[in-house]
Design a protein around this nucleic acid. Structure first.
Length: 705
RNA sequence: GGCGUGGUAGCUCAGCUGGUCAGAGCGCAUGAUUCAUAAUCAUGAGGUCGGCGGUUCAAGCCCGCCCCACGCUACCA
C-alpha cells in the first residue's frame, strides 16, 4: 500500500467555460477517488489549476480588445468557483500565470538544458513583424490557404479546409498584429528530443517496467490508453519544439533567448508541480515528498485528448529531469456527448457547468443530481451520451426511490417504534451484515480500479439490499402482532447500521447528500479516516451507531422530479429539453448566409473558365476514402478529374450526371492521378452535396458565365 | 487507406490472464405488500454475445478475413 497519493486533473485552458463533458472526464472521477482516499485516511493531495498561456489567449484578448490578463482572470475565477460549487474538492487550484509556476518551469527547463542531450537547437526561418518588432507565432499569421484558397487561413491550420499548414506556405501572408506583410527572418528554437526516450517508454507502457524494475501493472491501465500510446510509439516519436517567439508566456531562461517563451505544452504539465509547491507552501508541507518519494502514487486524471501527452511526453520530461515519479496510472476517460451529439458551444448544443448551476438554482440537490447522472453514464471506456430522460430516471428511480426511500423508511420506523433511538438489540452484526460487508468491499475494489460507474451501482445495491431486508422482515407486520417482538428491534438496529454505512460510502459520489444523512442519524460530520474506522468496526462486528443513539426526524433527501403534486422540478428539466428543440428547429431553415469571402473584381471572375460537362465514367481511387476518379466530357474533349466526393455519391450512379467544371484550373496530382479541373458542388448544412449543373442534355463544353 | 477503440437482451451497458460468462440497471408482464417520496419486494419473459472461417477437450473472451460506429491520420484542385 502506498504511503501517499498525488492526484492531478487536467488543467483547464483559461479561455472558456467548461461543459458537463469536461466534468465527467477529468474532474468528477478524480473527485470521487480523492474523497474516497480521504475517507480512508490516506495522505492524498489533489492539484489542478488554470492553464493560462498560449497564443489562443492572446488572440482572443486582441479580438475582444482586452488584455490577456483580463481573459485569464475571468475564466480562472469562473472555472475555479464553478468547480467549488459542484463539490470538486481540489486541495489546490493554482494558475500558470503565477510567479511560482514561472520559476518552477524555468528551473525545469534549465535542469534539462544543463544536463545536456535532452534538447537540440534549430535555426528556422520564421515570419517577423517589423512594426511590432517581434517574431510571429503561427497563429499570428493569416493568409491565403494554398490548398483551398481560403483567405483567412492561419499559419498552422486552415479552418476552412482543415489542412495543417506551415506559415511559409501561405500566399499573401499578413501579420495579425500590424496587418502588414511580415518578413522572413532566422530565429532559434529549442526542441525536446522525445525520440530518444522511445525504448524505455515502450517497455514502461507495455510491461510496466521502469529501469529494470516493476513500476505498475500495465493491465490496470485502460485498454484504449495503452492502445493509443503504442500506436504513437509505433509511428515513431519526433523532437518537439518547446519554445516560441511570443510576448505572452514564461520567458526562456537563457540570455540568448530574448523575446522567447516556453511553448505552452511544455509549461502546462509543470503546472501540476507548481500547484503542489504552492499547496505545500500554504500548508507547511513538503511538496517534494509528493513528487519524488518512491512511496507516493502519482495518478493523472484526463480526457482522451490528453492521453499521448500524459503517457508519453510528460513522463519523458519527468524521466529526463530524473528526480520525479512517473504516473502509476492515467485513467483517461473518453468523451461525453450530449443528447446524441457532440457538445458545441457555437451551435448552442450542451450545457456548461456554471450554466447548469444557474438554470437549476431552484432545484434541490442540483449538485448531487448532476454528479450522479454523470457518474452513472461516465465515459470510462467509450464515448457515452448525457440525456435528460436518463437524468430524471437516475434521480427519481435510484437516488429517490432506492437510496432516499430506504433512508426514509428506516428513520421513520425508528421514530415510530422506538421514539427516535437506536433500539436495544443483541443481534450479531457480523452475521447480519455479512452481505453488506461484502458489497462494501466490492465497492472499494471498484473504486481502486477506477470503475466508478460500477462502484456507484454497488452503492445502490447496498441500499437495495436494505430495502429487501426490510421487506423480508416486515417489522410493520410484526408490530401489529406484538409490538415488543425482539425481531423488530433487531431489524431496525441492523437497518440503522446500513444507513450509517451508506452515509459514508455515498460521500465520494454525492457529497452534498452525505452530510444530510449524517444529520438524520444524529451522527457527527464526516472527517478524514472515518470510513476506515467504519470498516474496522464492521469487521469486528461492532455497531457504527450504538444502542440508544438518538435519531433525528425524517426528512426527504430527494424530491422526485416526476411528482404529481409538484411539477416545478420537472419544469426546470423541461426547459432544457425545450432549448434543444429550439436549437434543432433553428437548424432547419438553413438560415446561415454564406460566410462572405472578400470582394473581387469582374476580372477575377473572368479569369475562370467554367464549362458544362457530363460525367462519362467514375471509379473509386484506391486507398483514399474521399476521392473519386471521374472522366468528364467537355464537348469533344475528355478530362480526368479527381474529386473528393466519394462519401457522397456511388460511382455507379454518376455516369450521365451533368456538371459544371472549372476547366482552366492548373492540373494537380492527387494520389498519383493527375486531376485536370474541378467539379462544382453545393453543400447544405448537413454536409450533403449536390452537383451544380445545367439541365440534362443542355450540352457539353458550353461556357458558363 | 493506415492506426486505435468499440459492435453482448427493446434501451443503456458489465463481462479480468479462454472452461457456473450468457449478466446488471431501466422498460415490460404477473403476483405480494403498505413503514415509506403512487415508494418497496418476488417471479418471468429465452439475446445464435456484428458476420464467416480457424485454433482448442473447451471461445463474446485467442487467430484470420469481412461489415458497421466512433476517434486520430492521409487524400476532398
Amino acid at each position: 500500500m502506498s504511503k501517499r497519493y498525488l492526484i492531478t486533473s487536467a488543467l483547464p485552458y483559461a479561455n472558456g467555460a467548461l461543459h458537463l463533458g469536461h466534468l465527467a472526464g477529468a474532474y468528477l472521477p478524480a473527485d470521487i477517488y480523492v474523497r474516497y482516499l480521504r475517507l480512508l485516511g490516506k495522505d492524498v493531495v489533489w492539484v489542478c489549476g488554470s492553464d493560462e498561456h498560449g497564443a489562443a489567449i492572446t488572440i482572443r484578448a486582441k479580438k475582444e480588445g482586452v488584455t490577456p490578463q483580463e481573459i485569464i482572470d475571468k475564466y480562472h475565477e469562473l472555472n475555479k468557483s464553478t468547480f467549488d460549487r459542484l463539490g470538486i474538492s481540489f486541495d489546490y487550484y493554482h494558475r500558470t500565470s503565477a510567479l511560482l509556476h514561472h520559476e518552477t518551469s524555468q528551473e525545469f527547463f534549465l535542469k534539462l538544458y544543463h544536463k545536456g542531450g535532452e534538447f537540440e537547437e534549430r535555426e528556422v526561418e520564421q515570419y517577423y513583424d517589423e512594426d511590432f518588432d517581434q517574431f510571429l507565432a503561427d497563429r499570428y499569421i493569416v493568409g491565403t490557404c494554398p490548398k483551398c484558397g481560403h483567405e483567412e487561413a492561419y499559419g498552422d491550420q486552415c479552418e476552412n479546409c482543415g489542412s495543417d499548414l506551415s506559415p511559409i506556405e501561405l500566399a499573401n501572408p499578413r501579420s495579425t498584429l500590424s496587418g502588414k506583410t511580415p518578413v522572413l527572418k532566422k530565429t532559434k528554437h529549442w526542441y525536446f528530443k522525445l525520440e530518444k526516450h522511445e525504448p524505455w517508454l515502450r517497455k514502461w507502457i507495455e510491461e510496466g517496467m521502469l529501469e529494470g524494475a516493476p513500476h505498475h501493472d500495465p493491465r490496470a491501465w485502460k485498454r484504449h490508453v495503452v492502445g493509443q500510446c503504442l500506436s504513437w510509439l509505433d509511428g515513431g516519436l519526433q523532437p518537439r519544439a518547446i519554445t516560441r517567439d511570443l510576448p505572452w508566456g514564461i520567458p526562456v531562461p537563457l540570455p540568448e533567448a530574448k523575446g522567447k517563451v516556453l511553448y505552452v505544452w511544455f509549461d502546462a504539465p509543470i503546472g501540476y508541480i507548481s500547484s503542489t509547491r504552492q499547496w505545500g507552501k500554504e500548508h507547511g508541507k513538503d511538496w517534494e515528498l509528493y513528487w519524488k518519494d518512491k512511496d507516493t502514487t502519482l495518478i493523472h486524471f484526463i480526457g482522451k485528448d490528453n492521453i499521448v501527452f500524459h503517457c508519453i511526453v510528460f513522463p519523458a520530461m519527468l524521466k529526463a529531469h530524473g528526480e520525479y515519479n512517473l504516473p502509476v496510472n492515467v485513467p483517461a476517460n473518453q468523451f461525453l456527448n450530449f443528447e446524441g451529439r457532440k457538445f458545441s458551444k457555437s451551435r448552442g448544443w450542451g450545457i456548461e457547468q456554471h450554466e447548469y448551476l444557474e438554470e437549476f438554482r431552484d432545484f434541490p440537490n442540483k449538485e448531487d443530481a448532476l454528479r450522479y447522472a454523470l457518474i452513472r453514464n461516465m465515459p470510462e471506456n467509450k464515448d457515452t451520451d448525457f440525456k435528460w430522460d436518463e437524468f430524471i430516471d437516475f434521480h427519481d428511480k435510484e437516488l429517490a426511490d432506492n437510496l432516499g426511500n430506504f433512508v426514509n423508511r428506516v428513520v421513520v420506523l425508528s421514530n415510530n417504534y422506538f421514539g427516535g433511538q437506536a433500539p436495544q438489540s443483541g443481534i450479531s452484526l457480523k452475521d447480519a451484515l455479512a452481505e453488506v460487508r461484502a458489497l462494501a468491499q466490492a465497492l472499494r475494489t471498484e473504486i481502486d480500479s477506477f470503475n466508478f460507474r460500477q462502484a456507484v451501482l454497488t452503492l445502490m445495491e447496498i441500499s437495495s439490499w436494505g430495502n429487501t431486508y426490510l421487506q423480508d422482515v416486515s417489522p410493520w407486520k410484526l408490530h401489529k402482532e406484538n409490538p415488543d417482538d425482539p425481531a423488530i428491534r433487531d431489524c431496525m438496529y441492523v437497518s440503522l447500521q446500513i444507513v450509517a454505512l451508506l452515509s459514508l460510502l455515498c460521500e465520494p459520489f454525492i457529497p452534498f447528500t452525505a452530510p444530510k444523512v449524517r444529520r438524520l442519524l444524529g451522527l457527527p460530520p464526516i472527517e478524514r479516516g472515518v470510513l476506515q474506522e467504519a470498516f474496522d468496526k464492521l469487521e469486528a462486528g461492532e455497531p457504527l451507531l450504538p444502542v440508544g443513539h438518538p435519531i433525528g426526524k425524517a426528512e426527504l433527501l430527494f424530491a422526485k422530479i416526476v411528482d404529481r403534486k409538484d411539477d416545478s422540478r420537472l419544469q426546470i428539466v423541461n426547459r432544457q429539453r425545450e432549448k434543444l428543440q429550439q436549437v434543432m428547429a433553428a437548424e432547419q431553415p438553413a438560415a446561415a448566409a454564406a460566410p462572405a469571402k472578400a470582394e473581387i473584381q469582374y476580372d477575377d471572375f473572368a479569369r475562370l473558365d467554367l464549362r458544362t460537362g457530363v460525367i462519362i465514367a467514375a471509379e473509386k481511387v484506391p486507398k483514399a476514402d474521399k476521392l473519386l476518379k471521374l472522366t468528364v466530357g467537355l464537348g469533344p474533349e475528355q478530362r480526368t478529374i479527381v474529386s473528393g466526393i466519394a462519401q457522397h455519391f456511388d460511382p455507379e450512379t454518376l455516369p450521365g450526371q451533368p456538371v459544371v467544371v472549372v476547366a482552366n484550373l492548373a492540373p494537380r496530382k492527387l494520389r498519383g492521378i493527375e486531376s485536370q479541373g474541378m467539379i462544382l458542388t453545393a453543400e447544405n448544412e448537413k454536409g450533403e452535396l449536390q452537383f451544380v449543373s445545367a439541365p440534362k442534355g443542355w450540352g457539353n463544353g458550353l461556357e458558363v458565365k
